[in-house]
């Protein structure tokens, strides 16, 4: 587990609460820290089980893509995950996770990434590790990508109960 992994807990006595932040080292082992952190936040906001599933899925897919493809498994890099509550343009309150990295620019929402790949005809053709972006697009209610001067910011939003 990375020594740099730190957690800043919410203080419910402060209004609005400071955005919680989880900093990870770019190694697959550190991803085990993410769900307990996100699960605690989800519980705080009474997020229903199906949305918790979606949050778990999207964070795991996004972060493992950064570790494996963005940083190419270099473990001395950092990833920051912040969680905020925001109001979507539609007016719906959302739990929003913002993931910052310093990897080479990669926009998962470019047309070439977004275009649905043809369905594999056989198991041999199926690339089981290549489903991350497709799953994120299916399970996150809102996705935004921003190119940073030295990295990437991916924002994933999930509806909160009204």
């Amino acid at each position: 587990m990375g020594q740099a992994a730190t957690m800043h807990a919410m203080n419910p006595s402060i209004d609005p609460p400071p955005p919680p932040l989880l900093t990870l080292q770019s190694q697959i082992e550190d991803l085990a820290l993410v769900w307990p952190w996100a699960e605690a936040l989800a519980a705080r906001y009474a997020v229903p089980p199906d949305t918790q599933f979606a949050i778990h899925l999207c964070l795991e897919e996004a972060l493992s893509n950064i570790v494996r493809h963005g940083y190419r498994n270099q473990s001395n890099q950092s990833i920051a995950v912040a969680c905020t509550v925001e109001r979507a343009p539609s007016g719906v309150a959302e739990l929003v996770f913002t993931i910052d990295d310093h990897a080479p620019h990669f926009d998962p929402l470019t047309p070439s990434q977004v275009a649905p790949a043809p369905a594999p005809a056989t198991l041999a053709e199926l690339e089981p590790g290549g489903q991350g972006i497709r799953l994120i697009r299916k399970f996150a209610s809102r996705i935004h990508y921003q190119q940073l001067p030295n990295g990437n910011r991916l924002t994933l939003a999930f509806p909160l109960p009204s």
């Binding site: 778990h56 899925l57 795991e60 198991l123 089981p128 590790g129 489903q131």
Partner: peptide
């Protein structure tokens, strides 16, 4: 309770071996 793409891999690769 939960299935991500690494879990998919844990299902697909053994299934591929059996079917092959």
């Amino acid at each position: 309770e939960f299935l991500g793409s690494m879990g998919l891999r844990s299902i697909v690769l053994p299934a591929r071996a059996v079917k092959s």
